[in-house]
């Protein structure tokens, strides 16, 4: 084998390796990327039923119900970003830090009737923690300004307007209630 053909072999092997890596990445990106959506976005433009998304927001206080279907526990709760609420059905154990009125991220798909079927529910292991995506979304919708203290109680959101929220959080006591 000549020097030239050996070098060619090396280059071709590198191209195949990196090329297949790039091809695999692109094909996986097109089908496996999980987008984050807020409840209002889900209602405005529901994703296709086979598309997995991450739904984030606050658990509406007093909305958590439990059922048992064929010996499996099912939790049903509403998640809101202040503008809209989506009902989430989750078959499984809710995380230890799942609380009403606190932030949550649910991974799953949107059913045809607009409810959300979660395959996973995430709540961080810290009571003061709010997932970055959720905080971002609340600020964008004008429901909460972090400069004025803790996030408002989720139960009150659907009735609040953006200016109310700023006023309310500004006058809140540090413990938030």
């Amino acid at each position: 084998m000549t020097r030239k053909s050996r070098r060619l072999w090396l280059v071709v092997a590198c191209m195949i390796g990196l090329g297949s890596a790039a091809a695999l990445t692109l094909s996986a990106f097109s089908s496996n990327i999980v987008f984050f959506m807020a409840p209002s976005q889900v209602q405005a433009k529901p994703p296709p039923a086979d598309r997995t998304i991450r739904l984030g927001g606050m658990v509406v206080a007093g909305s958590v119900r439990r059922e048992t279907v064929k010996d499996s526990p099912v939790a049903i709760f509403d998640v809101t970003d202040g503008q809209a609420a989506v009902t989430v059905r989750y078959e499984g154990i809710l995380p230890d830090l799942f609380r009403e009125g606190q932030s949550v991220v649910a991974v799953g798909t949107v059913n045809r009737d607009g409810t959300f079927r979660a395959s996973e529910v995430l709540a961080k292991h810290d009571e003061t923690y709010m997932p970055k995506e959720v905080a971002e979304e609340l600020r964008r919708s004008g429901k909460w300004d972090p400069r004025f203290g803790k996030a408002p109680d989720a139960a009150s959101w659907n009735t609040m307007t953006a200016s109310d929220a700023a006023k309310k959080t500004a006058t809140q006591t540090p413990d938030g209630n």
């Binding site: 996986a28 990106f29 496996n32 999980v34 984050f36 971002e136």
Partner: peptide, 18 residues
């Protein structure tokens, strides 16, 4: 400014074939 996440399905589909 898009929030996305890449999880197990992505890594399974890309690393195992390599």
């Amino acid at each position: 400014g898009k929030t996305i996440s890449v999880g197990k399905p992505f890594f399974d589909a890309t690393t195992i074939p390599l």
